[in-house]
């Protein structure tokens, strides 16, 4: 059962289109598995659409005559449309896409179908592929943890979003399942462990900071894992 959801402000920003593609994708993946959040998104979109299009600030809006500029644009769209009609049929179909980690094939959520995904880097029981979104300091990855694998205890300088695509993992706060949307920041410190293995979609905006004993030696490679 999904227990962790994006908070309201985040869903609102998602509906407004104000979030980066990486974070928007994480919310979309969650919403596809969470009827509750899907309903919230639907209602918020309806509301913001209503407000966007009901504001009538001047009579111009409703005038029957189009301005010259608008009329030009309209006739251009309709002229282009003649060409589009025959050879350009838009469909909502999304091709299925799979990704392979340690010999296991995973079907990717539709929202990732057209994203560029880099090669696999292995670090012990961890393996990750970068999702190449080119969003500056924000890094997005597919992170695979083999059974009994774990990410060493760490904290975050920025934020870390983890969306579980398959399997489960736990940390001191509890166990997480497929579809859970987990957002942590610098105040949190955790050590995710996966007994049976898992695949996550992760978004971080700064390197991980390992906090315990020998693992501190890993700090230079913190940005390699996530």
């Amino acid at each position: 059962m999904i227990n962790h959801h994006p908070k309201f402000e985040l869903i609102q920003a998602y509906v407004n289109g104000d979030l980066p593609a990486s974070v928007s994708a994480a919310i979309k993946i969650h919403a596809d598995m969470c009827p509750e959040c899907q309903e919230k998104i639907l209602q918020l979109t309806e509301q913001v659409a209503e407000i966007s299009f009901e504001k009538v600030e001047s009579d111009e809006d409703m005038s029957i005559e189009l301005s010259e500029q608008d009329a030009d644009m309209l006739s251009q769209i309709l002229a282009d449309a003649e060409f589009l009609q025959t050879d350009d049929v838009v469909t909502a179909e999304v091709a299925e896409r799979f990704v392979m980690f340690k010999g296991k094939n995973y079907k990717l959520p539709n929202v990732l179908a057209n994203m560029e995904i880099g090669g696999v880097t292995n670090i012990g029981k961890l393996a990750r592929s970068r999702v190449l979104l080119d969003e500056g300091e924000i890094r997005t990855s597919l992170l695979h943890i083999e059974p009994e694998g774990s990410v060493p205890q760490h904290t975050h300088k920025g934020f870390e979003i983890t969306l579980l695509l398959d399997g489960e993992f736990s940390d001191k706060s509890g166990t997480y399942v497929k579809g859970d949307f987990i957002m942590l920041d610098g105040q949190h410190e955790h050590q995710p462990v996966s007994d049976n293995g898992c695949l996550c979609f992760t978004v971080v905006n700064d390197a991980l900071h390992f906090t315990q004993g020998i693992n501190k030696l890993l700090n230079p490679i913190g940005s390699l894992i996530y």
């Binding site: 289109g17 593609a21 928007s24 994708a25 909502a92 999304v94 990732l112 057209n114 994203m115």
Partner: peptide, 10 residues
């Protein structure tokens, strides 16, 4: 890359 229609399908 026009990702929007994947994020918010029409």
């Amino acid at each position: 890359d026009n990702l929007s229609d994947d994020i918010w399908p029409l």
